[in-house]
Amino acid sequence: MREPLSLDPFVVAVILAMAAVTVVTKVGGIWLVRHVELSERLEAGFSVLPGAIVIAVLGPELAAGGPAEWGAGAVVLVVMWRTESILLALCAGVAGVVLLRSILSV
């Protein structure tokens, strides 16, 4: 096992290259739309992005889960819809998934 504080120069270089690549992905999109004039039509396309990305993240994530995840997802949906409190919704969802997993695995 290596010393906890040891830093191998090559490993550090690889990590910094990973960081650089990641920064390019994080700022690249907004840099592009800031430097390209968008037509109204294109802007309408961009306006659906937030919701579409959320659904694109969520769909396969939930599809890969099972009844426990789907049930807990429904709990989050209802609590969020009723209370509009993200904290409450998260707590209910996590509690729900732990509970449902223990029930369903019996």
Binding site: P50, E84, I86, A89, G93, V94, V97
Partner: peptide
């Protein structure tokens, strides 16, 4: 084991509720 893996999905479900227009 502690349901932490579900936080990610839960955040996105909550956001979907808010973004629904």
């Amino acid at each position: 084991r502690y349901g932490f893996d579900f936080v990610f999905a839960a955040v996105f479900v909550a956001l979907a509720v808010e973004l629904w227009e």
